[in-house]
Amino acid sequence: MILLLLLILTGYLVNLVIPWWGIAITGFVLGFQLKPEPGKGFGIGFLALFLLWGGQALYIHVANNGILSTRIADMLGVGSPYLVILITGIIGGLVSGLAVLSGTLFIRKDLE
């Protein structure tokens, strides 16, 4: 749970200062530091950014009355703006999950 919250918090903050791939760094570092079991690490990593990015997207979608997300859905040919939100969550989730997983697999000795 702490990992999840930390991932969301750091993922949010890092994205304010460096480009989107910052979430791979924070995920990796937190995975390395907190060392959850690898499978679980991937799951929590995925869930954290799925919630963060998907949540942010959903918020914007609602505040914007879906004007842009509907157009993007048309552009991508996916039909529904909710799928655009889902894709946003999945992309964030995959990167984060894989980053946390990588972090868990390294042990301190490896890096020395």
């Binding site: 994205n15 989107w20 990015w53 914007i60 979608h61 505040a63 914007n64 946003t88």
Partner: peptide, 19 residues
Amino acid sequence: PLGEFFDPESGFWANAETS
């Protein structure tokens, strides 16, 4: 570039006018 494009902070989502 999909990561950049879907990033809610600076991708296309940032262009949605919310106020």
